[in-house]
Design a protein around this nucleic acid. Structure first.
Lengths: 337, 337
DNA sequence: TCCCGCCGTGAAAACGTTTTCTGTTAGTCG
DNA sequence: CGACTAACAGAAAACGTTTTCACGGCGGGA
């Protein structure tokens, strides 16, 4: 009933525990014959090594931690999928933590990760409050930021936000749009800052004035805020020619408000999102958006983290070029070629 | 630089390691004063207990394993969210494993869970091949099935699939539909069987003949299969009055095909889904569907698993009643009251 | 023949906790 | 005043591995 230990295997194979350990590690100094006996004994006893004991001797746990605000957000779910898969390929498991953007939760998660001796941590969102604590640990715990770069001392892999929005804005300009509104995102968000920057640059190059609408205030209510602002925008009065949404989630909220107000997309307003989450490709939605290659980002993040864990590399920075994916939420402005 | 151990804390607090252990456990036999000193020392040294060492002494790891086919599927993402949250409340973490429905992956995951001394496991999908291995362990490892019940020896919590589809079918009947097609699901799926059963029962009670379309064959290609079958269905010729999709994912694929063929929903065909995944509530989609209370299911699953782990309860069975959520993909058949 | 070195293996220490068993001190009761 | 109890804390064993060190045997060179 009780699980077999290495000693049981050793006894059955007629060798010592040390030999079993070495045989399972496939060390060259052990005879083929001995290895065979050991393997056989393991099979018979259904032996599974105890990782807790292993990690006690200073070995690694082969567990990675992942800090995420909300796994039910498809943006993070997609990344998590990629991460989980890549990690599994390398023999690692991932311990998930939804912080729900609650600083206290984040702190607890970090502590619990530490307590569990994880080998490294992937962070795709963290509040400023928790960063101090986190920074204190960075020396000890390999870490890579994913999709953000809160600290220059730490590795990160992210998409080039400015480049992505630059390209999307150019696309809108090319379609003849001149009155384009950048919509949403928190005023504290560095990501928003970068996306806005690329947007503004494209507009400036096209000699067009840009507008933008920013969420300032409670961080948790962003979706609700977007919906209400869009409702307000569509209340009547002149519409912008196109809306550049901070994210696909935001774009969806804009769509919802538009639907409610009878505003048609793209006939009345063009709309582009950002992230290319799975929602965007759905029938009836067909959101034109900027793809972040979340899958690739996740994979690279794992690779970099493992390199760091295994001491093969120090701090790294990866910037992926995003890609505009054109669907059907933008139209050409009449009267343009 | 090295992490502080319990001995360091003991030294700083001027007590023994044993006392520190007891103090942190808040045992009554330790003086308030001593506890205070210990806590202070922990704070100073930034002490985090080593869970690996703790688990070695026969304690629990406070880690739960979760076997999922695909976390980027919103159905599982939603459940995972609920599970993660509830587990965290109880001081547990969850180790995630995406099997991608690959039996070999499943096996590996189970072994790796075992090696990591997890306290219990939540399974929301498992292939028949892996079940044998899993069953062998069930005596040792607390387990609850989530949304499925592959074995009567094991706890499970799931929605009453037959009841849900019964209700949805009644709704369709009430709207005047008489030619209703049950669409999709794998022929090996027990879930499909149950949903079909409720569907048929409702139809039989209404004196209506039901039809159904089932996927037989490669399990991984279900979405593609649905899309192609729907395309075929919409090729021309007589349409059913309503389609009852096996799942929301299937329903979405049907929508996609309908869009492609110029078939309007609900004007030309009514459509109901199953699961109420987040996609279903999106603007422009508004899928009428059966809600499984995935969140509640996840929570209950964690609660039952913990009860089992802590020896408070044996095998349990929970059946939740699903709920029809009416949106806008069904219309009343003309000529009915 | 003797010694050296190498190969394969075993014994034991170490990892950081928890827990059981003891021991000490002070207080209480007869 | 002596002995017993209660309250508190320490020493040491145990958990299952890995790893360091040591040892025995064997082949080969002198």
């Amino acid at each position: 009933m009780k699980r077999a230990t290495i000693k049981d295997v050793a006894a059955l194979a007629g060798v010592s525990a040390a030999t079993v350990s070495r045989a399972l590690d496939d060390r060259p100094e052990i005879t083929q014959e001995t290895k065979r006996k050991v393997r056989e004994a393991c099979r018979v006893l259904d032996y599974v090594p105890n990782i807790a004991a292993r990690s006690l001797t200073g070995q690694k746990t082969h567990i990675l931690g992942m800090l995420v605000p909300d796994i039910s957000n498809p943006y993070f779910a997609d990344m998590a999928t990629a991460i989980e898969r890549r990690a599994a390929q390398e023999g690692y498991r991932v311990l998930l933590s939804n912080s729900m953007r609650d600083p206290e939760q984040e702190l607890k998660s970090i502590d619990s990760f530490l307590a569990r001796q994880i080998d490294g941590i992937l962070i795709s969102a963290i509040s400023p409050q928790s960063q101090a604590r986190h920074r204190a640990l960075m020396g000890n715990l390999p870490c890579v930021y994913l999709g953000i770069n809160h600290s220059e001392e730490c590795s990160y892999v992210m998409a080039d936000n400015a480049a992505g929005s630059y390209e999307a804005a150019r696309y809108l300009l090319g379609l003849g749009h001149r009155d384009i509104l950048f919509f949403g995102g928190r005023d504290t968000s560095r990501t928003r800052e970068l996306r806005l920057k690329g947007f503004r640059q494209a507009l400036a190059e096209g000699g067009v004035e840009g507008r933008d609408l920013t969420a300032a205030g409670d961080i948790r209510q962003l979706r609700q805020w977007s919906y209400e602002q869009a409702l307000e925008l569509f209340r009547g009065g002149p519409l912008p020619s196109a809306i550049f949404a901070f994210s696909d989630i935001t774009a969806l909220k804009i769509m919802e408000a538009a639907e409610e107000r009878g505003v048609r997309i793209p006939e009345d307003v063009s709309l582009v999102g950002y992230d290319n989450i799975s929602f965007a490709a759905l029938p009836r939605i067909h959101l034109t958006t900027v793809s972040q290659h979340k899958f690739r980002l996740g994979e690279i993040a794992v690779e970099r983290l493992l390199e760091q864990i295994q001491g093969r590399r120090e701090r790294t920075v990866d910037l992926l070029r995003p890609e505009l994916v054109v669907r059907s939420t933008c139209r050409r402005v009449s009267g343009t070629p």
